[in-house]
């Protein structure tokens, strides 16, 4: 089954890239953007078909490689199909 992994900087960790994007949006005339946080989206196509086991595998992958848990948190979303 397919699993979507969303990796974002933890709250409180400065995001200079997000801040640069916010400034660029402002200069394009998009007003009222209070904050921009940038992250990563990773899609996994796993051989595992059981949702619980697939999530367990994806979680282990996040802890070991996909996220740096010193500065990043992650969320998992099972995908249809």
């Amino acid at each position: 089954m397919k699993m979507r992994v969303i990796v974002t900087l933890k709250p409180g960790v400065l995001d200079p890239q997000g801040e640069a994007v916010r400034h660029a949006l402002g200069s394009l005339g998009f007003e009222g953007v209070n904050k921009v946080r940038q992250g990563k989206l990773i899609e996994l196509d796993l051989a595992e078909t059981d949702p619980a086991r697939a999530e367990e595998q994806a979680r282990a992958m996040c802890e070991k490689l996909l996220a740096n848990t010193v500065i990043e948190s992650y969320a998992l979303e099972p995908l249809e199909g």
């Binding site: 960790v13 400065l14 200079p16 890239q17 640069a20 740096n68 010193v70």
Partner: peptide, 17 residues
């Protein structure tokens, strides 16, 4: 070394980008 966990902390993009 930080990614291996042999030292604490992390390195982010330079503040001035």
């Amino acid at each position: 070394l930080l990614e291996m966990g042999l030292l604490p902390g992390a390195l982010l993009r330079n503040a001035g980008l």
